[in-house]
């Protein structure tokens, strides 16, 4: 294809978009609706991922030392254990004050002295990954000077299981919606191709190459896909922004804080733009293919 053909094809793409403005508008809107739904699920998925991450980074193993334990040696051993991210030491007397605080009065147990304090020294251990918590706990349990180890096994397992299930469901739904968007675009662009079937036939009789015939359609589809994605991103951004503004006044637990950072939202909107543009172009390629191979 020479420069004249390329220039002509590009011009034809623009002319065709103008000429079939209504169909282009419908296609762009349908792409926007599909992508907005898909983007909504992707945002939900990003939020669920954040919840999983928050749970993972907050899972804590409480290591109760026995009364005769060599605390210094135990601390060294814990520091060296694999999978351990952070250790916080809570001495017995501080533990007593914490217990009092949790019951509403830090001085509630002032009658206990260092000698008769029934609480042991405690290490609060955070692991690098939540799914390693049980194996790390098992290693710690066998350490010299450890009395008991507790990390709320059942609750953590249930919470993680549930969030993973939801996350998987969202990924699967997003994939299905993405596929749906592709088929929708192909179907709509095929309508546009069918409307110009006669023109394609004439072009073939006049000796136009397949690339020459294809290019205006691909350009048209790419433009419609891109603008559909921009529209969907704008609408979704405004809705999400309004949602976040609405949630701002509420005292949400840390776990439920919505995703707001550009590093987390950027990929969602970037994916929508890339998907819309490529779905438009690729959909057009597939839609026009049928009409190029029958001669």
């Amino acid at each position: 294809m020479n420069l004249n053909s390329l220039r002509y094809s590009l011009r034809q793409g623009v002319v065709s978009l103008r000429r079939n403005a209504l169909l282009a508008l419908v296609t762009t809107s349908m792409v926007a609706v599909s992508l907005a739904i898909l983007g909504g699920f992707m945002l939900l998925s990003a939020n669920v991922r954040q919840i999983v991450h928050t749970i993972e980074s907050n899972v804590e193993i409480a290591v109760f030392a026995d009364m005769e334990a060599d605390v210094k040696a135990l601390r060294t051993e814990l520091n060296q254990a694999q999978g351990v991210r952070e250790i916080v030491f809570v001495p017995r007397d501080e533990g007593l004050r914490e217990l009092g605080r949790s019951l509403g009065d830090p001085e509630l147990f002032h009658v206990f002295t260092e000698r008769n304090n029934p609480l042991p020294d405690v290490f609060r251990v955070r692991v690098q990954a939540a799914d390693e918590v049980s194996s790390v706990a098992e290693v710690i349990r066998k350490m010299r000077g450890v009395d008991t180890v507790d990390y709320g096994e059942e609750l953590v397992a249930q919470l993680l299981g549930m969030t993973r299930w939801v996350s998987g469901l969202l990924v699967a739904t997003s994939a299905l919606l993405g596929l749906g968007a592709i088929f929708l675009v192909i179907a709509i662009i095929r309508l546009s191709v069918m409307a110009r079937q006669e023109e394609i036939g004439v072009m073939k009789y006049l000796g136009a190459s397949n690339g020459f015939i294809r290019l205006p359609f691909v350009l048209e589809g790419t433009v419609m896909g891109f603008f559909g994605a921009v529209l969907a991103s704008l609408v979704l951004w405004l809705l999400y922004d309004a949602l976040i503004a609405g949630l701002e006044g509420m005292a949400l637990p840390l776990l439920l804080n919505p995703v707001t950072g550009l590093t987390q939202l950027g990929p969602v909107f970037g994916t929508m733009l890339a998907l819309g543009t490529s779905v438009g172009g690729f959909g057009s390629l597939l839609a026009v293919r049928k009409y190029l191979h029958n001669r």
Binding site: M1, N4, S5, Y8, L206, G207, F212
Partner: peptide, 11 residues
């Protein structure tokens, strides 16, 4: 003109 455009003739 279409017959010339599809084979890349100049304007």
């Amino acid at each position: 003109a279409f017959a010339l455009e599809v084979v890349g003739h100049s304007p």
